[in-house]
Amino acid sequence: MTTDAFKISDLSKFYGPTMALDKVTIAAPKRAVGLLGPNGAGKTTLIRILMGIIRHSSGSGTVLGYDFCDSIQAIRDHVGYSPEFTPMIPDVSAMKYVTFMGKLSGLASVEAAQRAHDTLHYVGLAEERYRPLREFSTGMMQKCKLAAALVHDPDLVILDEPTDGLDPTGRQQMLDLIERLYKDEGKSLIVSSHLLFDVERVCDWVMVLGRGQLVTSGEMSSLLADTSGMLRVRITGDALSFSRKLTARGLEVEIDSPFLDVKRDNGTEMAILEEVNRDPNVSLRYLGSRTRTLEDVFISIVEGRELG
């Protein structure tokens, strides 16, 4: 059994003269994969190719081990897809909609209806399941889309901007649901989003696209790991005076309020502790490696690359 959620090789896509994907080669593991990139980077195009909705111009690839030229129907049966926009059949209830989606994925009528009940319960739409979709709020519609993506029990769930248009509470609920899908239900996920915090929270593997090309990919933890060799310190008291004392001891210090970033060297930690101990007006709140957010990484690699 394959360990890759999808694997593509030299995949290109042109819309007329416009290039959307440029010879992208990558193997994404069966984990919670974050698909990042600025608008127009090719995220949705890649997803649509993986689902067989549009045809690629050149290259090859597999999804869950199925070749997406030869076995697109098998891919569709084993992958759940929640698109970025809101596809709607306005006069139909959520229950009917999700049941119908189940039938399209090959579930028998009774099974589709039962699973529609279950998945709508699962996403938190139990009470609203008989209401017509036109009455649904954005948050409810996002949940309904998720239920439709899950109804046929896919091995891989592709979510395109799953928190788009949600208020903070709705966003939190959606992220909880996605996290639960990965951790409790063991589903592989591909989460495409431009909201970096969302990806950082639910994904542990990331691929970044920019201008149709793969910019970087890999473990979230290694991507976020700081390579500058700086220690991050937070104290209560006069930070400026404390930084001067550290500088006087020959340490290289940068102030990133409310933190102090200190160049790590042999005995740096000990020097900091000694200075804290020496000054009764200072107490230590944090001492550890400086970390980066996904936003820092994203800006440095995508925007930095574009500027370059």
Partner: peptide, 15 residues
């Protein structure tokens, strides 16, 4: 009442 695995058989294309 939540998620459970699908262990049945998928229907054919005509269905």
């Amino acid at each position: 009442f939540g998620f459970r695995r699908f262990t049945g058989v998928r229907q054919n294309r005509v269905y």
